[in-house]
Structures are given as C-alpha cells and as structure tokens.
Amino acid sequence: MRLRPFTVDVLLALGQVALLLLIGPEAAAVGWDDLDARGYALALLVIAPTVVRTKAPLAVCLVTYAFWATYVAVGYWPVVTSFGPIICLYTVALQCRTRTVGFCAGLIAAIWILGSLVSQDHASVPSVAAQAIGINAMVWRMGYLARRSAELARKTRAEQHERARHAVVEERGRIARELHDVVAHHMSVISVQAGLAKFVFDSDAKTARAALGTISGTSTEALEEMRRMLRVLRAREDDGEVPDAPMPGLARIEDMTDRVRAGGVPVEFRVTGTPRPIAPGVELCAYRVVQEALTNVLKHARHASATVELHYHRDHIEVSVTDNGEGVIPDRVRSGGGHGLIGMRERAKLYGGTISIGPRSAGGFAVRLTLPTSARAAPPGDDVTE
C-alpha cells in the first residue's frame, strides 16, 4: 500500500515526538539542562512545521531552523530535536536549486556549531563542525540523488509514453497501407469489370459473364486478404495463433496480372533469373508495390498496356512496372502526394530498398523497385528517387 505524502509527513512528525519523549529525559545525563515545559514546547515548535514540509519546503525549513536556533540558544540538548531540521534539509535538496540548498546547509551547520558553543565545551567545536559539515553534506547528496532519480524516472516515463504513441502511429500507418493496398486494387478491378458487364450485358452475354466471374474471384480474394489481416490484428502473441491464409508474395504476381488483364489492360509478366526463397516481408513489399502500380494503371492509363518484370539477382531482386500510356497522370501522382505512392516509399524504406517513381522519357509511367533478398533495416541517406 502506497501512503500519501502528507500521511508520511504526519508519521515522521509523530516519530520525532516519540523520540523526544524517549531521549529527552536523558539530557541531564549527558551534561545538558533538563527539558522543562518551555523546553518541550520549543521542541514541539521545531517538530510541528515538518508536517507540511513537502508543500512549502523552503519556508518550512527556515521556520524550523528559527525555532531550532531558539531551542539551542536557550541551552537545551540539540540532539533531541535535530532530526526535524535534517529532514527539512533533505526536502530542500530534493525540490530546490543548488544555491538554495547550500544556503540551508550553511544555516543548519551554524546552528549545530552554536549548540557546541552554548555547551561551553569549546574543545568539541572542531569535532562538532566536522560532523555538521559531513552529515549535512551527506544529506544534501542524498537529496540531490533522489531528485535526479525522480527526474530520470519522469523522463523515462515520458520516453516510454512517446515510444508507445509512436508505435501506435506506425501500426496505424501499416494497417492503413495494407487496407489501401487490398481495397484500392481489388475495388479498381471490380469497378472496371462492373462497368464492362453493364455495357455489354444485353449485347454480349459471354463477355458479361466473364466480367462477372472476374468480379466474383476478385471480391473473394479481397475478402480473404481482409480476413487474414483481421486474424493478424486479433491474434495475441502468447496464444500461438497463426493466420492460415498465406501472405501475398511473388508467386501471386502472375495471378494479379491475369486479373488486371481481364480488366481490359494488356499486361505482360516476365521473370528473369533463378527464382528462390525470399524473406516473406520482402515478398509482401514487392507484391504490394506491383499491386499499387497496376492499380494506378487501371485508374489513370486505362488505354495503355503494361509490363511487369521480376529480376532475381544474387543478393537482391528488382521489380518494375511500366506502361506506354500517354497517360493522364494527375498532379497528385506526379508530385507524390497520393497515399498509394507514399505507401510504396514507406515499404521500400522499411526493407532497405530503393524505389524510382515517375514518367518515362519515351512516354508512359514507370515504377522500379530494388530490394535486398533478406529483410534488413533501411540504410542511412536517401532511398527514394523520382
């Protein structure tokens, strides 16, 4: 159970009262005046302000020192009431600036030395002074370290909160990119095929049925990918659940080109080099970039033909999507303001790849992606070119 600061202060004050009652009667045995009613009253005045020490540390410290100096000057035993002033010095060191702490430490040392002078045992002054300096320096240091620890703890909590917030933002961005890639591509194909089916519904039943078949297959695949994403999001790390549907990869690029071809855009797919296993994240990155590039062809260069090329190299792969459209590429695509193009860049950066997006000199548009064959952190420097 954690106690409130005020409760702790009250308990410390009661502890000082108990100490006063316990060792106060021993004053005469060590050569000091007996504590009479005035002595006990002054002692209680020294103790009382410490109840609110955390609310006004400097003010409480000065008031406590004033009462303690009076108590000592009258000739009473300082040890009986020394605990309260030491607590006040610690509190000031915990909450105030170094200059203020030094001033308070000097005051308490002076009162300590005053007690040895009042006792008329001048031979003990050097010893008392050394004790005052040593003990108060130790209390000062403890308060300083506690303050630094508290500041570090606050900074650590703030950093943890910021990291958690950043992780949430990144995860939201990842989910948004996945949703965009799944929905935009499949809906583009479905929209094109639906328009085609509507156009030829009465005149060409065979073409209409083919378009409806493409719509059915595309919508089924979109639902499968959405379900896979939801299973990933719902799965807990400790329950060992793994989505049963595989993540899209390089092997499914050909199916995607067939789907786009059915949508009315001639697409040629070529593979060079020797296919081999690639890190799943890299495969997904390449798949999504091709998906987004073909989606843009469907949206903005419907009368063009496209070429998708996949090159396997020794330590990296290259994927390119080019079209020969005279294409109307909206300003947002040219300037890189579209969410899809932002997603391409983020994916390439995440897997340490490079990507080039822009119009071709011979006409049309091109997207070229280079990825290492194993996932790694993005290297420093620019990784995206236009």
Rank of each mutant, 00 (worst) to 15 (best):
D255E: 07
L94C: 06
A378T: 12
Y71N: 03
D323V: 11
Y65S: 15
I317L: 10
A262T: 05
V242C: 01
V63M: 11
L11A: 10
V289M: 03
M187T: 02
T64H: 01
L62H: 10
K349V: 09
C104D: 08
A279D: 14
T370C: 09
L117I: 12
T322V: 09
T207Q: 00
V260K: 10
A375H: 13
E254P: 12
D323S: 04
G358T: 05
A29Q: 13
I357V: 08
I329P: 05
F6H: 15
V189P: 00
I355N: 04
R270E: 15
Q291L: 09
A194H: 02
I108Q: 15
A194R: 00
L19E: 01
T50D: 03
M256S: 02
I113P: 00
E326S: 14
V52Q: 13
L152C: 08
V168C: 13
R2E: 15
R227I: 05
R270V: 08
R345F: 02
R276P: 12
R368N: 08
G338D: 07
T98K: 04
V328C: 07
V321R: 01
L22K: 15
L369S: 07
A146P: 06
V101Q: 11
R376D: 13
L350C: 06
A377E: 12
E171L: 10
L21V: 14
W68S: 00
D382G: 02
D238R: 00
L212R: 06
P330K: 15
T218Q: 01
R174G: 09
G195S: 12
L19A: 09
L20R: 13
G143C: 11
H303G: 15
